[in-house]
Simulated scan of single mutants.
Amino acid sequence: MDEFIIQPALHSAVGGITLLTALVTTVLTWVAFRKNTMTKTTYAALIALQVVLMLQAAIGIKLLDQGMGVIQKYVHYLGGLGSVGLLMLFFWLPRRSEASQARNAAWLTTASLVFIAMTFFIGQVFVKSQLNG
């Protein structure tokens, strides 16, 4: 695994996919909140977002292992752990009703989206500053 080199552009691309997945998931959870019920599509989107976040984290860990991005690692740790933690919290909360579950999903995915967007845009600013000098 040490001989396998990952380019930072891959991390940026998967970050964009992660941001898009988070946005779609947030929209789906708000639709579920308005309808007071969670659908299989909403659950699938929540699962897909968590999988994409895990993939993004694995790529980021490999880049850190290669010595890249050490300066901004705390922003990524906070952003990554915050976004995943909020999504995990949804599944830990008690299920009182479909309406409360949909409300929790909407608010927690929105908060997770904020963490993901923050991490993505701070990372993009860092990459651009590295390329410019």
Rank of each mutant, 00 (worst) to 15 (best):
E3Q: 11
T110W: 07
P94A: 10
S129K: 13
V127H: 09
L49K: 06
Q50H: 06
M118L: 14
A44N: 08
F120S: 10
Y74Q: 08
I47P: 00
L86C: 05
T26F: 12
T18Y: 02
Y43N: 14
W30G: 02
L53C: 08
P94H: 04
L55D: 03
T29F: 05
L78K: 05
L23V: 12
V127E: 14
K40T: 06
G133M: 12
L46Q: 14
L81M: 15
M88R: 01
A45H: 07
M88V: 06
G16R: 05
D65C: 00
V75W: 12
T119N: 09
M54Y: 09
L46E: 12
R34I: 07
L55G: 13
A22P: 02
G80E: 05
A22G: 13
G60E: 03
A105L: 03
T39I: 02
I47E: 10
V31M: 02
P94Q: 08
Q7V: 10
F4N: 08
Q124S: 09
T37Y: 03
V114A: 12
G67D: 03
T25S: 04
V24E: 04
A111C: 07
I17A: 15
L89N: 01
M54S: 14
G82S: 07
T42Q: 04
F33P: 01
G123A: 13
G16P: 05
S100F: 13
S129A: 13
F126I: 08
V127T: 14
W92K: 13
F33W: 15
R96M: 09
M54Q: 07
T26K: 09
F91M: 01
M1Y: 08
T18K: 00
V27H: 00
V31N: 02
I59A: 09
A102K: 04
A117P: 07
T109P: 03
K35T: 09
G16T: 08
N104Q: 09
L55K: 01
K35W: 05
A44T: 05
L19N: 03
D65W: 09
F33D: 15
L28K: 05
T119G: 06
L23N: 02
D65Q: 15
A48F: 05
Q50I: 09
K62H: 14
T119S: 15
L86K: 06
W92G: 04
T18S: 13
A22R: 02
W107M: 13
Q101P: 00
P94G: 10
M54P: 00
Q50V: 07
G133H: 12
T42G: 13
G85Q: 01
L20S: 11
I122S: 12
S97T: 15
S100H: 15
L93Q: 06
L55Q: 03
F33K: 15
A48W: 02
Q101D: 13
V127I: 13
Y77M: 14
R103E: 12
F90T: 03
D65K: 11
Q50L: 11
R103G: 03
E3I: 09
S112Q: 03
Q72V: 12
S83C: 01
L108T: 02
D2G: 09
